[in-house]
Design a protein around this nucleic acid. Sequence first.
RNA 1: GGGAGCAUAGCUCAGCUGGUUCAGAGCAUCUGCCUUACAAGCAGAGGGUCACAGGUUCGAAUCCUGUUGCUCCCA
Length: 876
Amino acid sequence: MSTSGKYQPQDFEDKWYSYWLQHKFFKSVPDEREPYTIVIPPPNVTGVLHMGHMLNNTIQDVLIRRARMSGKNACWVPGTDHASIATEAKVVNMLKEQGISKKDISREEFLKYAYDWKEKYGGIILEQLKKLGASCDWDRTAFTMDPHMSEAVIDTFIRLYKKGWIYRGIRMVNWDPQGKTAVSDEEVIRKEVNQELYYINYKIADGSGHLTVATTRPETIMADTAICVNPNDERYFHLHGKKVLVPLINREIPVILDEYVDMTFGTGCLKVTPAHDLNDYELGQKHKLPVIDILNDDGTLNEKAEILIGEDRFAARKKVAVMLEEAGSLEKTEDYKSQIGFSERTNAAIEPKLSMQWFCKMGEMAKPALDYVLNGDVKLIPDKFINTYRHWMENVKDWNISRQLWWGQQIPAWYLPNGEYVVAKTREEAFEEAQKITQDSALTIDQLLQEEDVVDTWFSSWLWPISVFDGIANPDNPEIQYYYPTNDLVTGPDILFFWVARMIMAGHEWRGEIPFKNVYLTGIVRDKLGRKMSKQLGNSPDPVDLIERYGADGVRVGILLSAPAGNDLMFDEAYCEQGRNFGNKIWNAFRLVKGWEVDDSLPCENKVAIDWFESRFNQALTEIADNFAQYRLSDALMATYKLVWDDFCAWYLEMIKPVYQHPADRETFTRTVKFFEDILKILHPFMPFLTEELWHDELFGERAENDCCIVAQMPSFGEVNTQLLNEVEVVKQVVTQIRNIRNQKQISPKEALVLSVKVNSGISYNDYKNVIGKLANVSEFTVVNEAVDGAASFLAHTDEFFVPLSQNIDAAAEIERLQKEQEYLLGFLKSVNAKLSNERFVQNAKPEIVQNEQNKKADAEAKLSIIEKQLKDLAG
RNA sequence: GGGAGCAUAGCUCAGCUGGUUCAGAGCAUCUGCCUUACAAGCAGAGGGUCACAGGUUCGAAUCCUGUUGCUCCCA
């Protein structure tokens, strides 16, 4: 503890993190203890820490630290994923700045640049996690492209291919023209966008007039291969069998009939563009229409468009509109709102595009993965997500796993000169296989061409809980045997399908087992106005900056206070301030105790206070454990907060605090120091730095080098004296009431008061004389048999208290107060009596509930008779 | 358009299978205090027709139906 006396978390946080690292407290190796394992949801290697990470990793650290302090062998595996699209985009940009174009360099050269980039910038986020206090086993830091991790990916590809679950096919995919790759359905974010609906006239080829088509994408007319109308649409009977001319290019296309067309939308005439729309594609298949793809991979028009070649699709849209207008083919335009897909990675508008891709069948794998969740083997917390999960799993579509990129695991498929392909781990194995298939002795190994594409990053991530323990290539190794299945996974609901569902599938496929027992789904961090935090809005605080200002402990407390499980959280810096203030409170409570002198000759006069706090502490311990068992971390924190601030600081320390510059007795001091140590333990998972700092203070005596709070064992549950707890609650009421009287009558806390009690409850107030004397500054406390005249009075439980005051009592005000209370009690009694005199209540309600009502009745009646008597006395 | 969820104090949220004074917590607010651990604090206090309308029940914040408003997922 620093000598400055002020709580300054920055002074010691780095010190203790280094100390923990040095002493390898985060390190885990299999042993005879029960394991407790968390694998980190690997953040994107290009990423920097944002508030979502803060939340997520604070939760993981709290769980892992608590497990570590509960006798478990705690292992938190950190790492990053290679984020193929995002990283490749960054590297391409970096090269562009250096004047290098990706087209001009080889795959090998590109990958070298990419690895250099990763080495240089890829670890930032992990360093930031250290600031937060994350107690990961850094020796285990994994990366989804580490050799053994990549090998697991390739093995998985081959295994699933051999099972017939991976196939290649032409499909309409979500094309990201900026990333120049396909993305999966889950990576497309739909947003409502204001667009224009263009009404375009197509001339009928025989010169008999025109028809009008409404479209949001006029630039795709050059790819039209038909116009479709509903066969039942009377307006268009005359068009059946006709041909029309595509405006601007005058290509002839047929009018086809299909009930698919919605007669009420637009004009009822649909342009069919099989290459650029999924529904049109299916329609085209059905009617055997040709496919004309007019777009390049980067979203510009190609020569098949005939016009505007090389223009970007959005620029082309505007130009086509102008050209149509000039040609007299544009009937009108209308404002129109519709849902457009955007790439999660690049935010480019997704272009539906036909291309040859690799797919992974999901149906077979989804079934067991769904069952694990439905039968509770894998628990989703909160369980409201089970419905969402089930819905997705029951309607799962095949997963497009190929990406047209270099950064990632290259698909282990090898093309032969004749167009066939084989799937094999190495070129050599592929060659062997190829020879077998082709029986071609002329085939040479160099003739094999490996698939250019890589697999989706999630195709690595779904193996994460297994592959970090090398459980794919070495399924029986001691690590995977020990740590798998892991315990808790902490992540956001937005990747329930991307990742969580697929990990469960992979777990079942490779090990016939779940990957984790519990999935804690955090909410999304929003600003206090409820908006999602985003770079564009600039409404996200920089977590590292927050840590510098409030301390890591303060930020951890702040973010947990605002984060009930599964709910989005409205983050406000005020929570961090509350966290820091809490740290300050603990710090100062510590300074108080530390400052006490001890006099061994003094007797202990605080037995009641000590016994009370011990009971209260044990009670809170159960509450906290219960909250943890239900993953109610903010409640666990709040229970701890109240125990420390209210019970320990505000009540206990005030009860036992020696008079200024007077020494404490040995017993009180020793017990209090012990309480403090236990408090540090339960606080540690939430506030690791502060607790470690105080743990090593000389107040606790000499500590061995490895005697650290981080590895201390949680206090064990002790006895709870309920009667004592209840009595102290009454005593606290007494103290509050006296303080109230002081407030009302403007009596200084320094002025001692005299107190008498007429006991009706059986509580032995003698035991609490000291406590009440100290907390309420009462110099004389006597038990009386009769009411004291002319004194301020109040009720605590059913006991009557009297405080004679130098000033006269305002009898009228006192009467009014009592009458108010009487009125309330009479009303209350009435409702209780109404219940009790209701036969159906007495018959139907559970006996203990009826008994309760009777207790309430007796209690109210007792209070009423006291008040009546007091009123009579005042009147008399 | 289909599905799910939510609505409780100024704010963020608890409130389990209806029944202890059930209407709560934290923060914020108000009042009084620089009482030598802490003003990043202490002591008090106020604040809600539990979205709205019906229903079931001896009894509803809690269960049912409808209405309104918001959020998310899917098409």
